[in-house]
Structure formats: C-alpha cells, structure tokens
Design a protein around this nucleic acid. Structure first.
Lengths: 336, 336
DNA sequence: CTGAAAGCGCTTACAG
DNA sequence: CTGAAAGCGCTTACAG
C-alpha cells in the first residue's frame, strides 16, 4: 500500500499540488469544477494530509500543552475537561504534562518538553500559574501561555481566575450566621496562591463580625486528603473542640468528616464541616459537604480559548477575567 | 532574534549540517574534537532542534494518544498516570482524547484525531479496548495500538488486563465466608467487558458455595456514582433486604453506603458493602470500603511501554499479559 | 571521520 | 483561476 500524499493526489487529479493545497485549505480561487474533481480524488484515494508536514510548513502543531502538579485529582480532571472543550472547538489537541519539580529543575523540564514536542501554547494551572520564574522563562522562549487561577499581577499575559477570597469570606460568614464562633481553618498548599486568598477571606469575615482570630485554630494542610487527616486530628484534639471546621478544599474536609465520624461525633449536630471547590466528593459522602463552587472547567475553558485566539492573532487584547465563586450549602453545616 | 536552526549551527561551527545532525543524535563517526566544537555551539546559540522537522524527516511524532470514555474520573487519572510514566521513560509525550461516541461517529472522530495530529501509537482504554470495529479500523490505518483491560481475544495486538473474574470471585467468597447468603450485585456499564467478567465471578462463587443465584438481587448500573445511587435505592427497598451488597466499582459502592447511612442503617452491622477497583474514594469514606485492588496504573504503564517498544521495532513479539487483582478488606464488610 | 544531494509532505510568495 | 519554484528544518542513503 503506497502512501497517499499531496503529490499522488495532484498527479491523479491532473492538477498541480498547489491547487490540491488550495482545495485542502478551503482557499478561494479554485474553479468549482476543479474543486469537485480534487475532492473526488481525496475520497477515491482516501487521502489524509500529513499534519507534521503541514506543521513544518506553517510552523504550527495545533497542540496545546497543559502543565499541572496538584494533589487533587478531581481538580486535574476538571482542568482537563475545560481545556479539551476549548481545544476541540478550534481543532486543537491537548498534551498533558504533570511536573513535580521546582526551580531550575522545573525550567529544565519544561524546556525539555518544548524540545520534544513543538507546542503552540501552554496552559498553566496552580502552582505553575504563580511561578514568576516559569513565566519569565516562557516569555524569553516566546511561547504563548495562559494562566489559570493565578494571583500574580501580570497584565501582559492571559489570566482567568475565580474570586477565592470572596468565596472564603462567604463561607465563613455562613458559619458565623449559624452561630459558630470557634471556627477552625485548614490551610492549603503553600505554593498555591489560592491558599493565602482563602485564608484572608476567612480572617476578614471573622474580623468584620467581631470574632477574634485565634491562631491555635489554624492547621497547615496541602490540599491532599492525607494532609486533611493530619490536620483533622490536630483540630479535633483541641480543648475545647471548635464547633466548626472550614477546610481549604473538599478532600481535606472529607478527611475531617471521616475522622469525626470515626470518633462518634455527629455531623453537623456536634460539629459543622465545610470545604471548598465543590469537587465530586462533596456530594458523594454523607452528610454532603457545604462548600464553595469554583468554576474550574469554565476558568480553564476560557483560558485555553483565549490562548488559541492569541496564537491565531498575537495582536488580540490580553484577556484577564475573574469569575464568581458561590456558596453551596449541604448537610454538613448547621446551627450551633 | 533570528531562529537558530541546524544551518546556523553548521555555519557557525564550520561543519556540514550532517555533522551537526550526527552530534545531535549521538551517532558515532564524529571525531571527539568536532563533537566538542558542535556541542559548544549548541550552548552558545541555545540551539533547540525543531521536533516537527525531525518528525517529518523520520516520520515520527513521539506522541502517544490515549483514548477513553469512562464515567469514573479516578480511573482516568490512574490510566493517565501509568501512561505518562511509560511515555516519559522513552521521551514520548501523551495526548489525551476523550471520546463519547459510538459506531460510525467513533471511527470518524478517531480518523479526525489522526488527521489533526500525527500520533505514533494509540492506547485504548475501556470501552474502546473492546471495540472490534475500532480495532479493525486502526489495523487498516496501520497505526500501532495497545489495549488496556480488554477481554477481546486478539493475539495480534498488545493487551494488558487484570483478572476481573477472579477478583469478583474472591470478593464474593469473602462475603460468603462472613456468613452472607443474600448478596446483592450491581452491574457496571454494558459496553465494558469487565462488567460481564465481574458478574460471572460473582455467579460462580455463589454456585460453588451452593447458594442459589437470585436475579432479583441484581441491579444494572453503569459505573457512575449516579447509577449506583439508583441501584442502591432498588436494592435497599427489597424485602427482605439483602445482608450484603457487592457493587462493580467503588463509586457505585460509595453511593450505596451514602444511601444506607441516610436511612440510618449501620454499616457493616446492618449491611455489608463492597466495591471494586480500590479507587481513592474507597479509603476516603467511612467506613472504608472492602474492595478489589485493580492495578490500573500498572496495566497502562505496561501497555504503553510495550506499545513504544513495538513502534521502535515492529518485529517485537506481541505482548499479552494478565495481572492479578487482589482483595482489600476494610471496615465496610463484617460477619452477618 | 565528513559532507553534498535528495527527500520527508506540505505551504508561502510570486508570476502568469 | 492555476502553477513552478523555493522553503520549512531536519534525516536518510550514498559517496569519498
């Protein structure tokens, strides 16, 4: 079976390969008759243009790379789903690249990625979207990128995030409105900018409602279930035990719920528990978790869509957007 | 900033571009001195070979595509993680392609994928690894592929799966050994071959222990949490209520657990619940789920590794492997 | 050990 | 409306 190329098609159809190319790319300036003829030959020979040859000639790959390193698997799944939606809309494909490294290693690793596969652009998710070093590197390499959920101020690059601080503020206010005053807090991963944002939302809500901030009620997690379990132990061992726990994501909140249940505590009667993200697990456990819905898919979808627009036309205005986060109340929180 | 190509390097170093190419690819037949010289120029000019040009010349892309359509997000995450491990080991990258379509649409969609991005190979996960139609298509296209968790008999293509039937048998036997006789079963998605395998493991265990199979105890799920919730309702409404429930995956088992808890049933005292897969959720909920550990990452890792070996050398023997599944007992099952 | 030529399968820029 | 030429940045096959 011989390979079918633009040359075989041209020969078979009795036209030049430039004409074939024109038909292929739906360009004007081809008479309807020849266009018909060429299209017919495409079918007869089952011709498939070679994307690599196209890529070389046009200096494009139609592939977007997605960089991530996140202990929450569901976050990654949602990121991918949003990214894929945007990619497929424009006939791009998505290459995934988890990276566990920091500093020099990170730059080297990304450099390697760009050397192995030519990518038209990169979408950065936390914590990479907050890495100034990486961003500077990408700029020197002249490779377009978009940031998701980044708190970095940089109006020269695409950024879509959600309002973490406001979300945390609302959730804390919700707990306060239920009569809670001793509200423990579990922080997220230190490298993620969302961690500080959520923490200050919590602190500000306390402040504005005249509740004194108590450092003893704060535990350091890293967004993983495991870290939530450690923090849960620390918090549930406090005397007196807080009446509510606000974890910076749903996985950690689920860990608190598990330990509380194991200790025969009733949730929410004995203790209220809330999370953040509205990950699937928030509704898969009993009681369902009160949480903040963060539009992860939508953030990523918009970021990638804008990235592709910018690739097509570098003069496109740099898109910067903040989406709303909203409170979802379920059974895990109740009046004190 | 001018682009640095093999030509600029050759010119700058005062050698032919073939020599540069040799150094680039670590080929022999270059004197140590010239090799040194060229390597130095690489650094000075910060030369990065263009992967697309290489791809065109060698007819390779160093990209593997991963096809999936699975309601279980954690399954996908595990598949990706195994696939990535193998890819990175050989300097390949991974492109992900979820596909929701069946029949003609599916073939067309995959055809489109291959037209947009040249892929060196494809790894098929359930239910695609069981689609004879897709497999036939890929064979006509001459594109290498590997099947994960497929029950299809085809010794001409790479296949790595785990022993679903044996796993289900062991889990059922575990429940029987605890004194259970009315064991409900929730089936998985009809398009997945694992569904029938697990079901027959369950049936055979009953048979071999002299327990009559009762169709009323069987519910049809599709591996999603939602379908598990529907099946749970059906099962827990039975009179008399079964004393144990075996769901074909952990998500569905989690849904049973949630409904049981909502109904004030104590697990495992009032009813034992077990799943399959050993997904993260199995240990994130309370009580933890007894389940069957399926080596999803390892299956995919081996499949992709073999795929890459076959791409490098088509004469490589076709790899076919069945991995063991093993019982993990947690708190959700107990003596009747 | 080294290199000149041809080619991978397309597109771009130009000419008619 | 159509095409011949050159080029994208590499590698392969061959010659010396």
């Amino acid at each position: 079976m011989k390979k079918v190329t633009i040359n075989s098609v041209a020969e078979y159809a009795g036209v030049s390969k430039k004409t074939v190319s024109r038909v292929l790319n739906n360009e004007p300036n081809v008479s309807p008759a020849t266009r018909e003829k060429v299209l017919k030959v495409f079918k007869e020979l089952d011709y498939k243009p070679n994307p690599i040859a196209r890529g070389l000639a046009r200096n494009k790959s139609f592939i977007i790379g997605c960089l991530y390193d996140n202990p929450s698997k569901s976050y990654i799944t949602r990121v991918q789903s949003g990214a894929l939606e945007a990619c497929h809309k424009f006939n791009y494909n998505l290459l995934i690249h988890p990276c566990e490294l920091r500093g020099d290693e990170l730059i080297h690793n990304v450099d390697q990625l760009l050397t192995t596969s030519r990518l038209d652009g990169l979408v950065l998710t936390p914590p990479f979207s907050d890495s100034q070093e990486l961003i500077d590197f990408l700029k020197t390499q002249n490779i377009p990128f978009a940031r998701v959920a980044s708190a970095l101020e940089d109006d020269t690059s695409i950024s879509v995030r959600s309002n973490d601080e406001q979300g945390a503020y609302e959730l804390t206010e919700h707990l306060i409105s239920l009569g809670h005053k001793e509200i423990a807090f579990i922080k997220g991963h230190q490298d993620h900018s969302a961690t500080e944002k959520r923490f200050s939302g919590y602190q500000n809500a306390l402040l504005n409602h005249g509740i004194e901030f108590n450092e003893d009620l704060v535990a350091q997690g890293n967004f993983s279930y495991h870290s939530g379990a450690d923090s849960a132990k620390q918090i549930l061992d406090l005397e007196p035990m807080p009446t509510a726990v606000f974890a910076s994501n749903d996985y950690m909140a689920a860990a608190v719920l598990k330990l509380a249940t194991q200790r025969q505590l009733r949730v929410p009667e004995d203790i209220s528990i809330a999370g953040f993200d509205n990950a699937p697990i928030a509704r898969h456990i009993w009681p369902g978790l009160t949480t903040i819905a963060q539009p992860v898919e939508e953030m990523t979808r918009q970021a990638v869509e804008q990235l592709i627009l910018q690739i097509s036309d570098p003069s496109t205005e740099v898109y910067q957007k903040v989406l709303e986060a909203k409170l979802i109340t379920r059974e895990s929180t109740a009046e004190k």
